[in-house]
Amino acid sequence: MSAVGTIARALPVPAGAGLARTLVERNARAFRHGWVTLVSGLFEPLFYLFSLGVGLGALIGDIDAGGGRTVEYAAYVAPAMMAAAAMNGAVFDSTFNLFFKLKYAKLYDSVLATPLGPRDVAVGEITWALLRGLLYSTTFLAVAAAAGVVHSWWAVLALPAASLIGLAFAAVGMTVTTYLRSWQDFDYIQLALLPMFLFSATFYPLSTYDESVRWLVQATPLYHGVAMMRDLMLGDVSWGILAHVAYLSVMGVLGLLFAARRIERLLLR
């Protein structure tokens, strides 16, 4: 731990005591009391999957998933739902929940009186968000597989992929949260999320868009999450997937650095 401490001090990383896991433990305990909320989060992506995949899918039939592959619509939309669920879960945890703990419950005021530092808070909260996300994505993947819309063993990698999406969005969400003043500001987060959810080639292929706006869609992080997930679940994996991984990794690492900095600023005045 002292070696980690030395490295942490040398880098421009906020202080921590390597005890982030204890904050994860705290969240796990808190959620034992609010398990209904935890479990209810499982259902939203599944509802979407069945509504779109089964209900609408029958109207649409098979579609061109790119690369000359034709798949039934449910198999096309399932990876997108999984990616979007990872995004939504991570953002909810890192914005709404974090804001409450920061501004109302004053949780971190008491946490920082212990050896834990701002880095532990950032790492701990994001780890928790990822674990929770993993629970959701595992369930989703199992249901999707049972429903027969998963086409390849590559899909096992969809679990770490969902975690990567979660990390990227949680880290950025956390940073954004430190700038929010009131609950009304959450409308602006919604304003960023909803169009991303709807327009990032989630429900229909990128080729639907006019050439002139495709670059805009491709610039969004969810587009990369969805594309990565779709490659894996349809078993259409090529080296190109690494571009998506790189995009989300950079976003996650930068977000994490900023988030811990901002939390330090906010709490250690």
Partner: peptide, 22 residues
């Protein structure tokens, strides 16, 4: 101002806080 963890019970407040100290 008391900064107790209102999502936890009385005992859990002590348990969790102790864990923060490793």
């Amino acid at each position: 101002r008391d900064t107790l963890d209102e999502e936890l019970t009385v005992r859990e407040n002590l348990l969790v806080y102790g864990r923060y100290f490793g």
